[in-house]
Design a protein around this nucleic acid. Structure first.
Lengths: 335, 335
DNA sequence: TTGTACGCGTTATCAT
DNA sequence: ATGATAACGCGTACAA
């Protein structure tokens, strides 16, 4: 007497088809070179009838791969990361893999929690999107040996990374402002401990020095990458002194700056020209349309996922630098 | 001679601590009421030393729950879904669960592929975000018996759903346009087979009828929920006839409409007033700021995740209707 | 050509 | 207070 196997398992299919689980496994995973068509048909029929779905957990346990990628972003609500997520997911889905999404809000403790969650889930790889901070100690002590990791943006972690030349990107923007006669350029930076702030600030300082612009340290202010931070910092700067250009290290801050300027009756670009960074889709929707440094976040995501799913070993510390381009729009269009 | 257990397993910890795997499991999962502190300490020490991380796959296989939620969205690049995703992920992360993100691009075959991927991964629940289409046959034949499902937006699936009153939302918008003397209102609908289009169109038609506005069928046009679709449809409508108001079924289409109007030299709101729907963050960043029907996508996501993770059984077919609110901004501000 | 049996790493049941 | 052992469902080396 055949014991009734639990429904939806390979064993149940085997019983129905009158074969062994081995045969079921072989037929259903395409290794059926030596199995007659008639047997295969019986197995397929039984599988369909029982709506058999191989248990990916059991398979993962056995094979040591989960067909999944972890994605760590500061905040999926931030437009910068949509395209990254799309890129990762498009590549993953095409490969039959799945993407696990986690948000850190740039809080180290949450980032650590995300990593724990993902390592628990035994993801095949992790993509860190969004730059790191200068104190990475919360990421020490993890065992990365069986997880492929790729970082996007500046990081100190010993993994291959995908970046742009942050310093040159901002330097280019400052040069453009200088070309349209800006001399005192307000710099809306991110937080001081963000690596992306440090890289971009280097570009700002270098360009300001080369061009002989005003090096007043009060022109550099720090805040989050949000519209409200940009607005407040700019309002404060307006109250404290004067400037004729703004370079913001991300577009949200730039848009906030334009609000503050509009509220104060300052004309953009005539009185103050404004440039953002990242070129998120809103940049061209706001008024005036925002000049911004553009690069393809979607390609960042695609490349990161391909590196993780690819068979080539990941060279630790390798850096792939994508090109950037300054898109000139109305916010710097002085005739 | 003790066989060397594979590193990073409970067995390895057990050997190092000089206890059995049973004890390790008990101590590490908090069921150690009857185990002396000294033994527990040995186990904890061994676990830390070996950086032991319980294998969630093995645990899931054994316990029948994966601590994961699948999220199906048309496109994570669409701002509507960021907040949904954040809401789901915030609740999930707080519960130690993980969110698997999948994009469908509103293509039935991809949606089907997403469901397959998620059911393969044995997610505890699935959140369908974004309305369904009137022909749901590609979702027939799935075995949902061991997966909790919640839909967001109009769907025909027999699962609990979270929605707004789409018909009333659009009706309210049309009433507002009528109040500021619009008589011929262009309706930028989604695709005809989208349920959300059908619901919102019902609201448009009902309001137009009650208010005695122009019922010219040419005033209803269909397109994707994109800026470019809104722009093209509006340009065509401008060429074909006249109108003094626009109701778009989503904000991207409304923003596209405003571009087309601006290009044609038509003033907003004086010549044509424009209203969008969803109130995504860009709505208040564009110029003129866009009047839109607002509701909390973040709360949609939170509630959906809570229903999935909650212990209460999900009542099939139950519908939770969230409130909506018309936010009046400059695009309808006629003095 | 097909089947038996073991192991993946965990938790739960039953002993002791 | 602790341990041996049997599942969970699959893949595969080894047998037949």
């Amino acid at each position: 007497m055949t014991g009734a196997a639990r429904p939806g398992t390979a064993k149940a299919v085997a019983e129905l088809a009158g074969v062994s689980v081995t045969t079921v496994s072989r037929v259903l995973s395409g290794q059926a070179s030596a199995i007659p068509q008639e047997t295969q048909d019986r197995v397929f029929a039984a599988a369909r009838q029982l709506r058999y779905r191989p248990n990916s957990l059991a398979r993962a346990l056995r094979k040591g791969t989960t067909q999944s990628i972890g994605l760590i972003v500061p905040d999926i609500s931030d437009a910068y990361f949509h395209q990254v997520a799309r890129g990762v997911e498009d590549v993953a889905q095409a490969a039959g893999c799945v993407v696990i999404l986690t948000n850190t809000d740039r809080v180290p403790a949450r980032e650590e929690a995300c990593v724990n969650l993902l390592l628990d889930k035994r993801v095949d790889g992790i993509v860190f999107a969004g730059g790191g901070i200068d104190d990475d100690t919360h990421l020490d002590g993890f065992d990365w040996s069986s997880t492929r990791v790729v970082t996007i943006g500046p990081h100190q972690l010993p993994f291959p990374s995908i970046t742009v030349d942050d310093s040159a990107a901002i330097s280019d923007a400052v040069h453009h402002l200088a070309e349209i006669s800006c001399r005192r350029i307000l710099c809306l930076a991110g937080q001081p401990n963000w690596l992306v702030t440090q890289r971009r600030l280097a570009g700002y300082r270098q360009a300001v020095a080369e061009l002989g612009l005003d090096t007043d340290p009060d022109l550099v202010v720090y805040g989050d990458f949000t519209e409200s931070a940009g607005e407040e910092l700019t309002a404060k700067a307006l109250a404290a002194g004067s400037f004729d250009g703004v370079i913001a290290f991300n577009d949200y801050a730039a848009i906030g700056a334009m609000h503050a300027l509009a509220s104060a009756g300052v004309r953009v670009p005539d009185d103050v020209a404004v440039i953002g960074c990242d070129d998120i889709p809103v940049a061209r929707m706001v008024h005036p349309a925002l000049t911004s440094v553009s690069f393809s976040q979607y390609e960042f995501g695609r490349n990161a996922a391909e590196m993780i799913l690819g068979s080539v070993p990941l060279p630790a510390g390798q850096r792939i630098t994508f090109p950037h381009e300054l898109l000139r729009r109305h916010s710097t269009a002085r005739r």
